[in-house]
Design a protein around this nucleic acid. Structure first.
Lengths: 200, 200
DNA sequence: GGCCGGTCGTGACATCTGTCATGGCCCGCT
DNA sequence: AGCGGGCCATGACAGATGTCACGACCGGCC
């Protein structure tokens, strides 16, 4: 029997995934959480064989929780995600994640994947693996990434400068540098591109 | 027995929802689709009692399919969505949708809701209903909305003008008008705000 | 008919933005 | 010590952007 802790912030989806997994004779969902922190607590309490974590969650996301679990226990973690971005896959593997499955995976395959991971194997969606391998590694600097994060929600340079505690000229320089590296013409396109690659 | 056609573009989620619904003795999923058009075809073929459609799907989305189904048959439609935006709820109700449930709804409630809708009732998530009622109705003009849609992916004014077959000055005027109405300073903030309200 | 509102465009203006050159500071590497 | 690279800032410039005023056309409404 494979005992699982399941985390997803959307109750409906989490419940549905639990129902899907409970159909399997050898799988048991022993705990459900709606954020990464609660998931870590549940793992400590229940000592399951596997943790299945949604990537996008408020507060601690799936990756935060996975890293925490990797350092404090040997529980294998499978990340489930809607947006399969290459950079995120790399960070997940670096964080000790054992399985990476996008939500486009057929439902019938999930149980097999969990069994494989439980048996010590690793699973990475082949599509994302390919794009992660062919993807160029992030050419951006830490500050550039930070400012791109701020640039994501469409504010002005002054807004960004204020939030980052920097001079507006400095902000423009960093963003300009990022735009050049990414080959785009506006900071918004740069932010979008960096997000799609999974860098921010 | 309530016979259901289920549509969601994410295989894993669709399969999980099917598993959840199949747990109920009085519910049967007779067909699954990954886009709105396929869902309509399935409804024509199977004549189910209910259609459960995810809102966000490529090609025909859940709302497109719901409108189509409303005009050609009397099948009640329940929309499931991740982003519960007030404007979308209004459009959904106008399109004859009988149920509107966000993915934050507890999984245990879904079956009840479907039974209620099948019995002729309507269901709208109370949270979204409240924000839809308190929301100001869209003050934007058709062209303003169109240009905001183009503005969503961060291109320059010239890009937008080209796509809309308009002079760039005209584009700036419309977007300026929209920004004033929405009380923001950049077209990107305006596009974001309009999206959050469900207007685009 | 007059009036209003939406649509499309032009011109002008102030400001914002992206680019470039330049400099200083600190850290790590050779 | 010299060099490179990231970090922070300034100044200057061209072009993009947002605002405003204005005009034209069309359709609906009173």
């Amino acid at each position: 029997m494979i005992r699982i802790v399941l985390a997803d912030d959307e109750d409906l989806i989490r419940g549905a995934l639990a129902a899907l997994l409970e159909l399997e004779d050898d799988i048991e969902v022993v705990g459900q959480a709606s954020n990464g922190r609660a998931a870590v607590d549940l793992v400590r309490a229940h000592r399951p064989d596997l943790a299945v974590l949604d990537l996008e969650m408020p507060g601690w996301d799936g990756l935060d929780a996975a890293r925490r679990l990797h350092t404090e226990s040997e529980i294998p973690v499978v990340i489930v995600t809607r947006h399969a971005r290459p950079g995120v896959l790399k960070r997940a593997l670096a964080g000790g994640v054992r399985g990476f499955v996008p939500k486009t995976t057929p439902a019938s395959r999930l149980a097999e994947i969990l069994r494989d991971v439980h048996a010590g194997k690793r699973y990475v969606d082949p599509e994302i693996a390919a794009s992660a391998l062919s993807a160029t590694s992030c050419p951006l600097t830490e500050r550039e990434l930070e400012l791109l994060r701020y640039a994501q929600d469409g504010g002005t340079v002054n807004t960004i400068a204020e939030r980052a505690h920097l001079a507006s000229g400095t902000v423009r320089n960093y963003l300009s540098s990022a735009m050049t590296k990414l080959g785009v013409d506006t900071r918004h396109e740069a932010a979008r591109k960096a997000w799609e690659e999974g860098w921010i």
